[in-house]
Design a protein around this nucleic acid. Structure first.
Lengths: 333, 333
DNA sequence: ATGTTCTGGTCAATCGTTTGAACGAAAGAC
DNA sequence: GTCTTTCGTTCAAACGATTGACCAGAACAT
């Protein structure tokens, strides 16, 4: 039984009050003074008719949509799943709906056009951003936005994690095991996280008094990791351990090690950034650095909720970063 | 420079025409007859001011939001990533925005309340549905909806894949390799896909004249798969091959085999449903059955776009289902 | 008795777009 | 020259909710 939609007026008629009263009751307007008996009548009518406010009308009037957008480059990357979950939870607790979309580059602009004006109250951009064009578009659109895990060259509007510290944790772990030739399988140079992790690697190596091993960049994908590892192992002086910038590329990197006829961790130790359930089930189980990705999503939404279009935000999220030791790291041969 | 929002009236003023003309030009109304010169003037004004229609006003008037919803149980399951991608692409090509949310059980109802009335034009429900309550809610809400990869007991509104055929492909592959004791690591019994794959397994075994090996159910997660495999290998008559209902549980199942001191594929062959890039990078690389998940998402949106609230849909998507042979299957010992 | 404050509401304008209807001017029919 | 069409455009009424302003009656103070 599909009843035609119920409006404020319908409820008002049943409850025998003005629409205004219904609206104020539904929204718990504190300035409303009302007899308890009347309020009951209104709530009963709402219940009886199954009234749900029409979002379009409401947001036309209030110019707030109670919806946030989140863009990620690719749903297939499970790292984003955690960010999404955190963001969704926080949005829900603030009464917002989160719309997550995947798009990058030019497609982002199209997406924004389809989103249109007034549909979302704020935007989160996660992941590698080829943003130049989009940011200009956003700045004219009067909606607050924020980059997640990524910084914009032009504007201070971001929340990031302490990637340098994550890298240090990984490198220190390898050093403690006795490794001295520690290579770095970095992320794509356009990704801000990659730069920060590489910087962290360099700093930690310097700190330990070790020379930087070979550094090879790769996309955050298994295929990228495999190819990069192949190149890395072809070099004359083979590393005994590799710090991989991302778990997805690490999965490929592990295959790259096997393809070279070597064994993990006997010949080469591997440690990667980002923990996933999956990491524990790889063969061998992958040692990782866990980052508070869910918290990142949460915090992004929380900030967005209180952000003015012109505010600046530059936050390094202080959350637990810890090494999860599994079986892919061991002392050098 | 954040300009306050631009409305039709602003554009109309600049172009020196009525708002109605601007609206009709923007929407390419075919009933409008207009001097080319005037149209030019309007388009120029739109461009100059950067006008974007206000979605709230538009959908209040037209009662269409140009937005679809898609619910999945969990973003962490990469199988859904493909469905989302397909659905998003199709939605985009029809000028719709897709809002993907994860929620299950009671949370789904809350989510629907936050979505409100009039925000979305249709809803796709993917994955294991504990839906009883939600479906009642949906049926009163006058919005068309559809289940993806999953059937509802009560209403004929679904698109599914040919899971029986996928199971048959997997089993036939094992039979061809010479296996006779083929076990089945099934999905959770509440999942419709699990039931269909199990049925396909049984039929294929009967077809091959083989007795059904042990059947153990597990959640579609690595942890579930590992536990189930442990139980399965504890049985007296060990299978030489296992057909796993889902790639996520297969990852755990592989670890379960190793934990039992056995080797894949020497002692046990493994084949699972759903291909992922990841599967090729496991150790050993996992043999899978590829299903057209992207197509499923695509088709779901396409159907939704032309669906009336009361239409019924019951479609088994005919798409390419193929076995991807890798290294986790081999002849029995 | 008169003025003031409070209680419990009602009125009506407004948000920005869409769209059926109307309308003045020009063109064509007879 | 008048009548009907057609063209190009304008008018104005919705859509459904929000919210500042207003108001009738009761209660209270002086």
């Amino acid at each position: 039984m599909k009843r035609s939609r119920v409006t404020l007026a319908d409820v008002a008629a049943v409850a025998k009050v003005d629409r205004a009263v219904v609206s104020r009751v539904v929204n718990k307007d504190p300035t409303l003074s009302i007899r308890p008996e009347t309020r009951e009548r209104v709530l009963a009518a709402v219940e009886e008719l199954g009234y749900r406010p029409n979002v379009a009308a409401r947001s036309l009037r209030t110019s707030r949509a109670h919806m946030f957008g989140l863009f990620i480059p690719d749903f297939a990357n499970p790292v984003y799943a955690e960010i999404i979950k955190g963001a969704e939870a926080e949005a829900a607790s603030q009464g917002y709906v989160l719309v997550t979309g995947s798009a990058s580059g030019a497609a982002l602009g199209d997406y924004m056009d389809r989103i249109g004006q007034g549909r979302i109250d704020g935007l989160l951009l996660a992941g590698t951003g080829d943003e130049s064009g989009l940011i200009a578009q956003l700045d004219r659109s009067a909606i607050p936005w924020l980059m997640l895990n990524n910084r914009s060259r032009s504007v201070k509007r971001y929340v990031i994690l302490d990637d340098a510290r994550a890298a240090a944790l990984a490198v220190e772990h390898l050093v403690r095991l006795g490794h001295r030739r520690i290579a770095h399988l970095a992320g794509p140079s356009r990704a801000d996280t990659a730069t920060r992790r590489s910087a962290g690697y360099s700093a930690a190596m310097r700190e330990a008094g070790l020379p930087e091993g070979p550094i090879v960049a790769a996309d955050y994908t298994p295929a990228g990791g495999a190819a990069a590892m192949a190149r890395m192992l072809a070099a004359p002086e083979r590393p005994t351990a590799v710090f991989v910038a991302n778990v997805a590329s690490a999965i490929g990197a592990m295959e790259g090690v096997r393809a070279a006829g070597l064994e993990i961790p006997r010949d080469v130790s591997i440690v990667a950034v980002h923990d996933l359930e999956l990491a524990g089930y790889l063969n061998p189980a992958l040692t990782t650095v866990r980052m508070p990705l869910g918290e990142l999503g949460r915090r992004g939404v929380a900030l967005l909720a209180g952000l003015k279009p012109d505010d600046t935000v530059a936050e390094v999220l202080a959350g637990p970063i810890e090494l999860i030791q599994r079986r892919s790291t061991a002392p050098p041969p």
